[in-house]
Write a protein that binds this DNA or RNA. Structure first.
Lengths: 213, 213
DNA sequence: TGAAGCTCTGAATAATGGTTCACTTCTTTC
DNA sequence: GAAAGAAGTGAACCATTATTCAGAGCTTCA
């Protein structure tokens, strides 16, 4: 046997795969899923179409990886703020929504691709899956808030679903727009609305539209 | 000249077109946009694939017609309840949401296709367009409610967008599910949540989960 | 250095599904 | 009933793209 993959070679492959995923993410953020063909994505990553299949068994698999990574990051950040943050449940809820919205508005192309852009069924399923997870995160905080007497009795799953949908819908237009006027006002209004939605007594003081992460 | 389209013949053509649109709607409701190929839809309407092009210049045009009609009906019903209904703005808002949700739950397949099922870009654009219109309907009632002192100061456009997204997201799972358990509870909870969202003081008495239209 | 075995390439292939079109069938009118 | 012209048919056509694969070029190791 005259050839065996050396560790360095393995690293190189892994790095190439990484680079491919990153570039694919960029392409998707720029032109949307529909226009991100294998050839275009491969070219952006500086490789040929055929090489993509060295790293992924199909285009769908690559698309899923791109989606999961990007969405996973957001989910993680949201989870940290909602459950690892400080303050009571309502405060954390407000913070979480504000952080989420801000991050989205800072990466419009990507956020739009993840939230709304038309895509192949495989990615659509991921979207549903991740929405379910966002919902679960929200539901936990809401349950906590209800238990602490900060929020009125309600079905936390429904409010959580509503928040997930509401945030997405409120952001869609601003994300598609080209100017980013009034991002602060938007975030403040969205947060206030979300708190009402959950039944928190509106207390503008508990919201700090500042720090964007 | 030995042939001229007779009125009866024109009617027959119009009826055929009508039938095509209706059957296409049924097919879409049953199998989703993705599986509603021209051949399948044509077969359902009892005609050949080629004949579809007698009535529509392209598959996309037919899909758009199907979407606009079905969504248009819902928009109309919602508009009637929101603006033509009786009671104050808050009451009408609650009624509108309840009616919308109920109608969706009674036509799950169609509602799912209109609200969430993956589809070609042309229909996706229609979806955005119609969501904008739903939003506008909600925004008007909310403005009215604010003006009447029934709702707190807020950006009606944002709350309206939020309601649009929230209702859709809350319904997605139940629409996809096969049992229709607890539809009443769902509608009641959704309505209450929506009212909180708009900032109405929750008054369960103002909601009548009854009559489904 | 050279054999072995890998990665990379990109043109060829395959599959899907909308669209066309030569032909058949039906309607109208004289 | 026959000519003129429209509607209907469905198999062939076409466009688009994901996927494959034979060959070129590297990397490893004796």
């Amino acid at each position: 046997m005259a050839y065996r993959k050396t560790p360095a070679e393995q690293d190189r492959l892994k790095a190439a795969r990484e680079h491919l995923v990153e570039q694919a993410t960029t392409v998707v953020a720029e032109v949307g899923w529909a226009n991100a063909s294998v050839t275009v994505v491969a070219a952006a990553a500086g490789m040929s179409a055929g090489s993509v299949y060295q790293h992924f068994p199909s285009k769908a698999a690559l698309a899923i990886e791109v989606f999961r990574r990007a969405s996973g990051r957001e989910l993680e950040v949201l989870g940290e703020v909602l459950h690892g943050g400080d303050g009571d449940a309502v405060h954390r809820l407000a913070q979480g929504i504000a952080v989420f919205a801000r991050r989205a508005l800072e990466r419009r192309g990507l956020a739009y691709a993840l939230l709304a852009a038309p895509t192949e069924p495989a990615v659509g399923e991921q979207r549903l899956e991740f929405r379910r997870r966002y919902r679960e995160l929200f539901a936990q905080v809401i349950r906590e808030g209800v238990a602490a007497g900060l929020l009125p009795a309600q079905d936390p799953e429904i409010t959580a679903a509503a928040l997930t949908g509401a945030i997405g819908e409120v952001l869609v237009d601003p994300l598609a727009a080209h100017d980013d006027g009034a991002a602060d006002a938007l975030v403040a209004e969205l947060t206030a609305m979300s708190l009402r939605c959950a039944g928190a007594r509106v207390d503008a003081r508990s919201v700090h539209p500042g720090g964007s992460r």
